[in-house]
């Protein structure tokens, strides 16, 4: 790993100031993705801005009909938080399947979303639940947040502060884990929320996406039967040594049916 300067600000304003002054500085939350990348020298930041000392980025609260989760909430906290478990149990269950125990003890909701790994769990949940991303300067709807592989709408000196998840009537999640890496080969989050039925897919393409054909079918009939006639095109899906695009397209349908069963 190349060396870097280390900063540990205690306010969002101070963190943003450091990031704005140095375009090669990078924020670090749990570091579960960034540190392995730095070890491989895939990245050479001049400085790391540790977000671990910023109290404003923590906490889970209910605001009206939404659960607002601080960006620095660890996966373990999302998985076990009583508010999340009561209001959006599918999100808590999903968080309990991210990585392994030690990754969940360090990795954060905000880190995962800002990194936007194609196989990460949270992006599909954010799309399906119609989440709003609250940053250090604005609010971004989930549909505008995920731009492409490892790319989001966040500016280099913009920090994700919290994510607001509208409480759904029903929601469920299912994924097929790669047996070796344990990352999602294809995962589907289904939700029937205040803005209608939404379906988010991860793992299958270069970026999480909404499956609108499923949304239309499930809006008319919230049941696995409704998915029988739905198709998933393999165009633009990932093909690699773990599975071809056709296989992943098939998995998306199967995982959607399991996610519906999970939603109950």
């Amino acid at each position: 790993m190349y060396d870097f300067e280390y900063h540990k600000p205690t306010t969002i304003a101070d963190a943003v100031k450091i990031l704005a002054a140095d375009p090669d500085a990078k924020p670090i939350s749990g570091g579960m993705t960034l540190l392995p990348a730095l070890k491989h020298r895939l990245n050479k930041p001049s400085a790391l801005v540790d977000l671990g000392g910023i109290a404003e980025l923590r906490g889970v609260k209910r605001e009206g009909n939404a659960i607002v989760i601080g960006a620095m909430a660890k996966h373990y906290e999302v998985a076990t938080d009583p508010l999340v478990k009561e209001a959006i149990p599918a999100l808590a269950r999903m968080a309990s399947t991210v990585g392994d125990t030690q990754v969940r003890n360090r990795g954060t909701l905000g880190g995962s979303l800002a990194n936007n790994d194609p196989a990460a769990d949270y992006p599909a949940a954010a799309l399906a639940l119609g989440a709003t991303f609250i940053t250090s300067r604005r609010s971004i709807p989930a549909d505008d947040f995920f731009v492409g592989m490892f790319t989001t709408a966040l500016e280099p000196d913009e920090l994700l502060v919290a994510v607001s998840f509208p409480i759904p009537e029903k929601a469920g999640y299912a994924k097929l884990r790669n047996p070796a890496s344990r990352y999602s080969m294809a995962g589907v989050f289904v939700a029937k929320g205040p803005a209608g039925v939404k379906v988010g897919v991860n793992g299958a393409a270069s970026c999480a996406f909404r499956q609108t054909e499923m949304e239309a079918a499930l809006s008319a009939n919230w049941s696995a039967d409704a998915l029988s006639g739905v198709t998933q095109s393999p165009d633009d899906l990932n093909s690699d040594i773990h599975g071809g695009a056709e296989y992943r397209a098939h998995l998306v349908i199967v995982m959607a049916k399991r996610a519906l069963a999970d939603a109950g």
Binding site: G31, L35, L48, D50, G52, Y76, Q102, V103, N105, R106
Partner: peptide, 18 residues
């Protein structure tokens, strides 16, 4: 794996300063 503030963590993926 070691315990940090009571939780198990992977010490190879944690900066000492953290």
């Amino acid at each position: 794996v070691v315990h940090m503030n009571g939780e198990s963590v992977k010490s190879c993926t944690l900066l000492a300063v953290q």
